[in-house]
Design a protein around this nucleic acid. Structure first.
Length: 282
DNA sequence: AACAAGTCCAACCGCAACGAC
DNA sequence: AGTCGTTGCGGTTGGACTTGT
């Protein structure tokens, strides 16, 4: 059965998003939410495929995103989580409020990976690179590294490695974040942030999926939480002027606030009490 | 100042998973 | 039970930007 392409290839714009497109998308999502991503671009007047819209929103436009480099604590947490979860970026992102899987993945590939290599640690196995690299694996015999080994017994050889793994033993002590624990920056529109500022979308869907028995290093919570406290609107919001959105009736988007009667809470799906990943924000 | 090399990250692609029918 | 449609996820890429020569 041929899969239907996510979008018609003709007449669909690709490449970097413009401020105008961002504005359209945010404006639409804020006023209507989305019934399904496939129709979002049509209704929003965008020549994009739904998938592209979802990605843009998830990775860049969501109001609850933190921007900027990962803090040391966050980085450490990513390393710890990667040791446990492997390349399950969405699961890892679920532990870092305000961070997206894409962002973490990028940071891993550009920073952490190299850092670990420099420290003599295999970024895949998180084990020390003791010997010279083995000859290239024979085809089809690539090491089955689907599940990274548990690291309880790891003994990194150098200081860096030691630092890298220093928190591994404390995992059980990490409290999981609950949406209600995350504070909202006072400067932001309360309604908006109370819905969408609570958990990242990546986290949104996956947070509840992550094994409850799993919790990550002890070093992370404070910083992660504080990071969320510092959550700011992504730049594009400013670029096209949040005032405009506000003026256009931001406050009215959230009936619960009693400020308006749009009838739809664009962030109703944001998981403050269980977001269904598959249904999205229907 | 100009060019090359390296780095970074937003965005795309394709597959898998899941729910609805 | 099987098919179809939608979304989520992870890998990869392209181009803008930065740094070095």
């Amino acid at each position: 059965m041929g899969r239907q392409p996510c979008c018609d290839k003709v007449g669909v714009k690709k490449g970097p998003w413009t401020a105008e497109e961002d504005q359209k998308l945010v404006g639409f999502l804020l006023t209507h939410g989305h019934c399904c991503w496939r129709v979002v671009p049509k209704l929003a007047g965008l020549l994009r495929c739904g998938k592209s819209c979802r990605l843009r929103w998830t990775n860049y436009l969501r109001p609850d995103l933190k921007r900027g480099l990962l803090s040391d604590d966050e980085e450490q947490l990513v390393i710890d989580l990667h040791a446990q979860l492997g390349n399950r970026w969405s699961k890892i992102a679920a532990q870092l409020p305000g961070r997206t899987d894409n962002e973490i993945k990028n940071h891993w590939n550009t920073h952490i990976r190299k850092k670990l290599l420099r420290m003599g640690i295999d970024p895949v196995t998180h084990l020390p690179l003791q010997e010279p690299q083995p000859p290239p694996p024979v085809e089809g015999q690539e090491q089955e590294q689907q599940e990274p080994p548990q690291l309880q017994e790891q003994q990194p050889q150098n200081d860096g490695g030691e630092h890298m793994m220093e928190n591994m033993g404390d995992e059980d002590e990490l409290p999981m974040f609950q949406p209600h624990e995350i504070t909202v920056p006072p400067a932001l529109p309360t309604a908006a942030t109370s819905n969408c500022g609570s958990v990242s979308s990546a986290s949104a869907g996956s947070a509840s999926v992550v094994s409850p028995s799993y919790s990550s290093s002890a070093s992370a919570p404070a910083s992660a939480a504080s990071g969320v406290e510092a959550t700011e609107w992504p730049e594009p919001m400013y670029l096209f002027g949040m005032d405009g959105i506000m003026d256009a009736g931001w406050g009215g988007l959230f009936p619960g606030n009693g400020v308006g009667d749009m009838g739809v809470d664009p962030f109703a799906g944001y998981p403050d009490d269980g977001f269904d990943q598959d249904d999205g924000w229907m």
